[in-house]
Design a binder for these strands. Structure first.
Lengths: 408, 408
DNA sequence: ACGTTTAATTTAACGCGTTAATAATAAACA
DNA sequence: TGTTTATTATTAACGCGTTAAATTAAACGT
């Protein structure tokens, strides 16, 4: 069971995190879970109550004699946060209140081959609409977490990749979006965000685990003791671009045989198109924005017993399984989570294959049986993780936080 | 350049680390490098001087006007630490004084196929002798760092592997050794220890880097911001057991195609033995304790232009290069260090091959040119790292520390 | 009904870091 | 030689955590 919770290093922040995941807690429970002393809890809770972030909500049911525990709860309306996940094929927006409850959401077309200005304009419109319709005052919005795939400069809020279009490379994404929305914007990696989103959803019974995120690309994230492994430049765990046993397919990164090139939904769909009868039978479209929809068609065909579809998906799943083995062995993990829209229907097939590979090949398989979990919320986990990142890392005890652009 | 230095989390510990790496520093310099305030430095230095760990050694050369900086220095005789690296083919022992200077060392046969009791008896004898001959009082020895290959339970001080003999599995190594030596013993992984040892030697110009350690086994270590990545159970970066492109050789871990099975010195020597003329020409022995000596023969043959030897080593180096690519891409690194006795002579060949692979295939190769360094002290880096671990993590401001067995 | 027991919370004193102000020292200069 | 000035080191006041002791509120036992 997760001991502390992630995010902010400060005492007040850790207490807010705990209240967010646990709903209500008494002061003693906060003391037990943070490892801090009751005295510190008293003082910190007083500050949080004075700041309007927390309130007492009643007394816990009496356990024997003694003064009853007074339960504390976050004030959900204290702040809100927006999570925006942009992928080539889909964009997902969520709005969370301060307690982490999803109060609004939307799903729209992905960035496709657009230029960043176009995508940002659409995002601003949808986010503003969403906030207006939910009746959330703009000055009560703490910030937005922008979640994308691939290498990023989180400090400067830019992508370090020329996909989907060269114009995205080093475009000042978070700065532009922050100016247009009037709130601070943080940048985050899709797999890392999904990892935190899933942990938040309660799917993961551990606070040390790896996550494989599959949308149009394949990403990876590692959480150790509730903190994400970030490496040198926050672009770690690029599991989509490791070469494994005998692949030959050329990858956009310039190498051959990457997991991305061999096993991603785009590749699987391309293989399906090569099989004319299969493509016709399932109505595969093959357009660049149809990848996930086409992949869904294959997954549904697998579920209804289509042999050809099953063969393609299983080949991809074996690759993902091998990537999982490398992930687990190098990062010393025993739990892997599969998340992202690609697993919406095909999830169980991938879960089974990844579990089989891990049980056969993970180094510590004798010491602890590797666990593989399918994300509870494959489609919105990343966007939720982006919003959570904002709730967890931005300063909340000031009336209106300064418009920080970079990350924390 | 490394900003802080690794190890202890406490203020006093960080200051000792800095004095150890820098030799002498004034209070202002300590303040600049730790990021702490001059006031804290004054108070902490006073405590360290009172404890006899640090003393003023003179004044820095005057820079303009103002009060001159008073230089501080560790008292080398305040404590000593022992580093013991045990491998199948070699055992290396070093003694460091409190300033980290090597004051004694020895090299003896490895553990071979012995039972742990036998190895420990030999270690106790050699360590005791070494200390006696160096005139170091036992009560001035802070502890010993025991460095081994493969999975460990650092808390309990046990190996989690049945190599070299099943009796080693869960044998209470550090407890037994601590009792016999009369000093606390910490357990550490060979690659991690070598990483810290090399950083200490000054080879590595970064404080975020990966290290590949090759003795009879292949190990890996990752240092991020001066701290080692440890994962869930301190057994991370098992780079010897990741499967890469198309290997088939069975490995002791139960899988096929591990880097360990395809590229380790043992494998290279076995391949050399299969070539009767090569084996005869170089005098390859082939015994289990001769592996490194045989590997050295191959390396020297390569250096004098032997084609067959070169082919074998280059095949191994390509594997190591691929492992390095995976390491760099997953952990988001741009610097790799090669360490361990296997690189004593063959180092340059491996360095060239690893650099070539990284320049061709590392994901961030466009953003920062990957650097590959050959360890300055391939043979003793791990033992030195083990001793450093003791100096850095054991309490030093008590007259005689309690006999802590576990790790820190 | 009322003192005793138990558990939760609060208060008091202190440790170790901070920032701001002060003291000490030697070069620069009249 | 005495004063000014720049730099280093120290002291003073305070913030946020700690531990130890005190206070509060319910349940138990007679």
């Amino acid at each position: 069971m997760a001991a502390t919770g992630a995010g902010r290093a400060t005492t007040a922040g850790r207490m807010l995190d705990l209240l967010r995941t646990q709903g209500t807690l008494s002061r003693v429970e906060l003391a037990e879970r943070t490892g801090l002393t009751p005295a510190t809890i008293t003082n910190t809770v007083r500050r949080l109550i004075d700041a309007g972030l927390v309130h007492e909500i009643g007394r816990g049911h009496q356990r024997g004699r003694g003064q009853p525990r007074r339960l504390l709860e976050l004030d959900p309306a204290a702040w809100h946060a927006v999570g925006i996940q942009v992928d080539r094929t889909t964009t997902t927006i969520v709005v969370l209140d301060f307690a982490g409850t999803r109060v609004a959401g939307a799903s729209l077309r992905g960035s496709g081959g657009e230029r960043p200005e176009t995508t940002i304009a659409a995002l601003v419109e949808h986010v503003t609409d969403l906030l207006r319709h939910s009746g959330i005052a703009p000055e009560r919005v703490l910030g937005a977490g922008l979640v994308t795939h691939g290498p990023q400069d989180r400090e400067r809020g830019m992508l370090l990749t020329a996909q989907p279009d060269p114009a995205w490379l080093e475009f000042p994404l978070t700065r532009t979006l922050a100016e247009r929305l009037g709130i601070p914007v943080l940048l985050e990696n899709d797999a890392t965000a999904a990892a935190f989103g899933e942990q938040w959803a309660g799917t993961v019974p551990a606070d040390t685990f790896g996550l494989i995120y599959m949308a149009s690309g394949i990403g990876g994230g590692v959480i150790v003791d509730g903190e994400s492994y970030r490496g040198r430049t926050s672009n770690a765990v690029e599991i989509g671009h490791i070469a494994l046993g005998g692949g030959r397919a050329p990858c956009l990164c310039g190498n051959n045989g990457c997991a991305q090139a061999e096993a991603s939904p785009g590749t699987v769909v391309a293989q399906a198109l090569a099989d004319a009868s299969l493509a016709a039978r399932l109505g595969i479209r093959g357009g660049p924005e149809d990848t996930l929809a086409d992949f869904e068609r294959l997954a549904r065909a697998w579920r209804t017993g289509d042999r050809a579809a099953a063969a393609l998906l299983e080949r991809s799943a074996r690759w993902i399984g091998q990537a999982a083995v490398t992930l687990v062995n190098l990062f010393d993990l025993d739990t892997v989570v599969l998340a992202g829209p690609a697993f919406a229907t095909a999830g169980p097939l991938y879960r089974r294959q990844v579990a089989a590979e891990l049980e056969q090949r993970a180094l510590t398989r004798a010491l602890s049986r590797p666990g593989v979990h399918l994300a509870a919320n494959v489609e919105t986990a990343a966007a939720i993780g982006g919003a959570l990142h904002v709730l967890r890392t931005m300063p909340v005890d000031v009336p209106r936080p300064p418009a920080v652009i970079g990350s924390g």
